[in-house]
């Protein structure tokens, strides 16, 4: 299984889900894909489908409606999977934390592996977050990294 575990680290496909962010973080996520940051160097591909994803990248605070969607999507990702909360909003609710329709951070709904704070987060921070998630995954899998 060595080769499979190595491959897991080398090929994280992400799926980006936007709860109710101000779209600041979303733009930064997409910026990672641009030639300047080019995350495909690390095998990171942005998939539009939970069934193909390994890493769920969530931006924005969870509101009452997206909570259900987020749960559904999370359930559709095959194991092993990681969740990264990108942006202060996704970590804790951020500036929206006391809105009437906001439940709070992503971890109110699904387990989060890595928190990447920032408003909005820098692309470097997002890439760092993914690397951190991979390290966590490799530890869990017992692959030295």
């Amino acid at each position: 299984m060595g080769i499979i575990n190595t491959s897991r680290i080398k090929s994280p496909w992400i799926m980006h889900f936007d709860n109710s962010s101000c779209n600041g973080c979303d733009i930064e996520v997409l910026a990672c894909l641009t030639p300047l940051y080019d995350v495909e160097r690390f095998g990171i591909v942005n998939m539009g489908n939970p069934k193909h994803a390994d890493v769920l990248v969530v931006t924005g605070p969870v509101n009452r409606r997206t909570a259900r969607v987020l749960k559904n999507l999370y359930a559709q990702i095959p194991d092993p999977k990681m969740v990264i909360a990108v942006g202060t909003c996704a970590c804790s609710g951020g500036v929206f934390h006391n809105c009437y329709n906001i439940l709070g951070g992503v971890d109110k709904v699904i387990p989060v592996d890595v928190y990447v704070p920032g408003c909005a987060v820098k692309p470097e921070a997002i890439i760092d977050g993914v690397v951190l998630a991979l390290q966590k995954l490799s530890k869990a899998l017992g692959v030295a990294k």
């Binding site: 889900f17 489908n49 939970p50 069934k51 259900r68 969607v69 987020l70 559904n72 999507l73 359930a75 559709q76």
Partner: peptide, 20 residues
């Protein structure tokens, strides 16, 4: 078994083809 991908809007379990 998982429900089909419906942008996360499926009602829930695998036995239904309802969505919201």
């Amino acid at each position: 078994l998982r429900p089909v991908y419906l942008c996360g809007e499926q009602v829930g379990g695998v036995d239904t083809d309802e969505w919201i």
